[in-house]
Nucleic acid binder design. Structure first.
Lengths: 231, 231
DNA sequence: AAATGTGAAGTTGTTCACAGCT
DNA sequence: AGCTGTGAACAACTTCACATTT
């Protein structure tokens, strides 16, 4: 599998489509786009593995991921050299290395805020767990309201959020609340200790420097498509 | 060469972070990232307008959009000059100009394929219509299956798709089918005349050059967040 | 012979600095 | 005085070309 998209990250003050967050780790600084592609490579490698393929060339893997082979090799070069010249890469080993680099080895707990249409769908979306994330709880201003659908996660009121986040050491939140309240909700999240936000509201969130926001804006994706397909 | 089977062939440029489709219109070639940002500016302008603000400086608008003011001005420069020096931009006028440039003035019909969890949520998602898109119909392999939720759009069987697309002149499709069938569905869509696809499956689709695919991959978004927020 | 790894070249995108209007 | 518009400088990213290894 693979295929990433591009909803780029917006940090207030830096801009759309910009670069690395300031984070000055000792590790080599890896460009954001490379990180994105590493996720894609990971999914392609998973498919190769499922099909019993043990070795792959940069050419073949790049093709599956939709990039040039030189780019793939450059991307890998940021954090090591794993290939065998004349042969290619060991699928399992490369998977493990990229996985380590991305830090996706462990299961990450995530909360979701805003149990409306979209939130409800995401709560039962299978795609997350398979990739190492688990939405462990949901929060909503009206937790008791009847939903169209049964979900396995509990829905709490907003007032329970700070304590829950601290108690469970949650660092990431998916935010699917209406645009009118999203900044307020964000403030609460940040205050509670959340440092990564996946935001579905069509607005640029104001957050401190050490908090990262990834925006997913479906209307913009459509608009973008519509621009490029017209004559 | 046992690998051939799952290597998705894709057109150069498909996938993540790619560039302009080859489309060489007479119009100035505007970078993809700029187009993305234009959509954001548009939404900021709409909010300014709602708040009764008639004039805005590049500085202020850029701040709302999360970019630098020079970038905003450069973006606009690709297709005209609309500001008044010493004063700024007329909100209504700039909105209109960007809207024209993006071609979002008219309402675009869209179909959705794959009425599962996510598809169902998107069908009742309010965010689209407000931005000029209308999902006019849905298609699914099991159109009669009972859904958890009432929606206003009709759900047709896959066999009805080609005729419908032609009859209604639909150009864009949102694809929320399982990864196992997404390529097959894509082939049908392309064959039916669809040229813009918003794909939620975690795989790189194989499409002809004149078809554009935007991928939305939520697991990758989360993975990306998780990478950048760790210490 | 086949395929990786990488410096160098090339391309694209962003920011600066300031000229030029209003 | 304030703010836009833009060439030039800069930075990031991609691709090329090829030396290197198996």
């Amino acid at each position: 599998m693979a295929a990433g998209v591009l909803m780029e990250v917006l940090r207030p003050g830096a801009g759309l489509l910009n670069f690395l967050p300031l984070k000055k780790s000792e590790r080599p600084v890896i460009p954001r786009k490379t990180i994105y592609r590493l996720s894609i490579y990971l999914r392609c490698l998973a498919r190769l593995h499922e099909n019993g393929i043990g070795t792959v060339s940069s050419e073949a893997l790049a093709k599956a991921a939709g990039v040039k082979s030189t780019q793939l090799r450059k991307d890998l070069a940021y954090f090591g050299t794993f290939g065998t010249r004349g042969l290619g890469y060991d699928v399992t080993e490369l998977f493990k290395k990229i996985s380590e680099e991305l830090g996706t080895s462990r299961l990450q707990p995530v909360i979701l805020v805003g149990v409306g249409n979209l939130g409800l769908a995401l709560l039962s979306y299978r795609g997350f767990e398979k990739e190492g994330f688990e939405i462990i709880a949901a929060f909503d201003a009206e937790p008791r309201r009847k939903r169209d659908k049964e979900i396995k996660q509990p829905i709490h009121g907003m007032e329970a959020l700070p304590e829950f986040v601290e108690a469970h050491g949650v660092k990431m939140a998916i935010v699917t609340v209406p645009v009118a309240v999203v900044q307020e909700v964000t403030n609460l999240l940040v205050h509670s200790g959340i440092t990564g936000i996946l935001n579905f509201a069509p607005i640029v969130l104001d957050v401190p420097e050490d908090v990262m926001v990834n925006n997913v804006n479906l209307a913009i994706e459509l608009e973008n498509l519509s621009y490029f397909i017209r004559e």
